[in-house]
């Protein structure tokens, strides 16, 4: 088991900067999720931890040992890939056995360890099949078994669930989390799916354009976003971001007014989550644009000026479109961001 320290790591491809000046401490036994849109550098960061790519600057320390230039095969790191990457010519048994053979683990131990790993992912009865004869979910479980079998210091998972259908993804998610808690292995998990990030992570690192936007627990990321990127990326539907002007404790945008703290001044962006918006009141004067019942809740879209505002309404709420409507915001859950996109915070 090991902690991971990334110190000012950087990856450039010619003029293109994949990851810039990134520093991160990952604690022993932590489940850390790198979250961001595609091309944000999260997979590159993971590949550098794995040793599959060398950083162009900075230092990587795993378990107290500097690993920056060490080859992937000599880092005690197991990786699970998006496309499973099972060896097609080998049976599942041989696939799981491969890392044991490569690491020179005594032959006598192989069988017991392979069966234990396979049982952990409920693949015990598929060991003599070839990967081609398994379903997507089974293949991903086989890949997990291959990663756990040699009890590595670190697990790296690169979007392991994104090739699976929604239902399977949910059950695999629980399985991965359970396994990580059981084995207590430091885990870095890359995804672009915020639900996966929120449900799995001890801490989330949100990345964009090669740089860290915010690091925090899922709760912190959700309830205390550092900037508009984080605010707009997390939540489904995401936070409403309304551009307007704040003056003397009053925020004004077309169709929207709200009280704001005195230190918020000038051109700002108001952020408010759909669940903190309620039908009635006087913050928004607009028209109903659309109503989407989902069964357990109803999403209401309100057009205020040219801005569409998402509201999480009562389950039984129904309305025709183009009907005038007013909305209130929960004043305790308003966020203000400056012109640079960063959160405006009062003096502590």
């Amino acid at each position: 088991m090991a902690s991971i320290h990334l110190q000012n790591i950087e990856k450039k491809y010619g003029a293109f900067v994949g990851v810039q000046n990134m520093s991160l401490e990952i604690a022993d036994e932590e489940f850390l999720v790198l979250l961001g849109p595609s091309g944000c550098g999260k997979t590159t960061t993971m590949r550098m931890i794995a040793g599959l790519e060398l950083p162009t600057g900075g230092k990587i320390v795993i378990g107290g040992e500097e690993m920056t230039e060490i080859d992937a095969r000599d880092r005690d790191v197991a990786m699970v890939f998006q496309g499973y990457a099972l060896y097609p010519n080998m049976s599942i048994y041989e696939n799981i056995r491969f890392p044991l053979r490569m690491r020179g683990i005594p032959k006598a131990e192989h069988d017991a360890r392979i069966r234990q790993a396979a049982d952990m992912v409920e693949l015990g009865s598929f060991l003599d099949r070839k990967p081609g004869a398994l379903s997507g979910g089974q293949r991903q479980r086989a890949a997990l078994a291959r990663a756990v079998v040699r009890q590595p210091q670190v697990f790296l998972m690169d979007e392991p669930l994104s090739n699976l259908d929604a239902k399977l993804r949910q059950s695999m998610r629980v399985q991965i989390k359970h396994m990580q808690r059981q084995l207590k292995v430091t885990t870095v998990y890359v995804t672009h799916d915020q639900i996966e990030a929120m449900t799995l992570a001890d801490r989330i690192v949100i990345m964009n354009k090669g740089a860290i936007q915010q690091v925090g627990t899922p709760d912190q990321i959700y309830s205390d976003p550092a900037n508009t990127f984080v605010a707009g990326f997390i939540g489904s539907p995401p936070m409403n971001l309304i551009e307007g002007v704040a003056q003397n404790g009053r925020f004004v945008a077309p169709g929207v007014t709200a009280a704001c703290p005195g230190y918020v001044q000038g051109r700002v962006t108001l952020g408010v989550r759909p669940e903190d918006c309620h039908v009635g009141g006087d913050n928004v004067q607009g028209m109903v644009y659309g109503v989407e019942p989902t069964g357990d809740t109803t999403y209401l879209t309100v057009l205020a000026g040219t801005k569409k505002i998402e509201v999480k309404a009562a389950r039984e709420y129904r309305s025709d479109i183009d009907v005038p409507i007013s909305i209130t915001f929960d004043p305790a859950h308003l966020y203000f961001f400056g012109e640079d996109g960063q959160r405006i915070r009062g003096a502590a």
Partner: peptide
């Protein structure tokens, strides 16, 4: 052959010649 296969073998602890012999050659037989 997907590059992921080689990445997987490398993190599993295989060197270049092992990857060629055990992964690549069987896969492109």
């Amino acid at each position: 052959i997907p590059k992921e296969l080689e990445d997987a073998a490398r993190t599993d602890g295989a060197g270049d010649l092992t990857i060629l012999r055990e992964i690549i050659v069987p896969a492109c037989l």
